[in-house]
Amino acid sequence: MEEWVMVLIWTVVTLSALGVLAAVILYFVAQKFKVEEDPRIDEVEKMLPGANCGGCGFAGCRGLATALVQNDDISALYCSAAGAETMKKIATYLGKVAPEKEPQVAVVRCGGTCEKRPRTNRFDGAQSCAVVASLYVGETACAWGCLGLGDCVAACTFGAIKKNPETGLVEVDADKCTACGACVKACPKGVIELRKKWPKNRGVYVSCVSRDKGAVVMKACKAGCIGCSKCVKACPFEAIKVENNLAYIDPAKCKLCRKCVAECPTGAIVAVNFPPAPAKPAEPKVVAPKADAVKVEVKKEEAPKAATETKE
């Protein structure tokens, strides 16, 4: 036989023998160091949405699944993205008491649209709310409201927040929102709040977070809360409090009667997803009429001429 054939055969034989030997060693090692894992963890993980959004406080869905399987009391563990039904299913599977949590939805508490809150400058730096918040007041004179650069949009795993170019604000799609809270953490201004989710996605809330005094708010934005306290008197359920020049409606006490909405002089209290009332319609949230867009463009052109200032 020729020499190269022998070399070939020997090579194949030695490598195969090495392979078999390694396989045997690995088999025994694997047996010896086998990690016993509850197979239910896999099952529970499959039932969870798998978005790894981190809303539950764990790094991902597997973390929550492990905790659900290992803890006897799972009342503090909840996946808002899965919802009550799935949590019940998981609890039944595990033979535990299902955790309960009122359904919630993210609410953007700022009504400072381009029309109501004029832009005083233009920012041409890194397009990030966190960067703007660390540098200066933002493109408007309000130091509290939505900066509109969409850190929350980027943080949302479910595509539930979008920026409305007409208003310059972000809007939450209540049907897609799972109340995981990622947007709440991403917003450097603390504009977004998780509030009780009512049937038909209705809600009444103060769409402003400015703690400035009334006169300062009025200068910066026509839709801001001026802390006048009229709503406090109007509320029959004592659900509204004014602290630091800002009204807040306690979602636990609010019954959606909408008496405050009619009282609010600036329209800072909004009622969303209600059918239009026959006489005086409750103010719809952010459906801007077309005329707004035209006005906005005029303003944009004026801004550089006013030649104040932009950001570095």
Partner: peptide
């Protein structure tokens, strides 16, 4: 005028 900067162009901060 487009920007008014407090400080120099390298480290200064634009003013609003």
């Amino acid at each position: 005028a487009g920007k008014v900067i407090n400080g120099g162009p390298m480290m200064g901060r634009a003013m609003v």
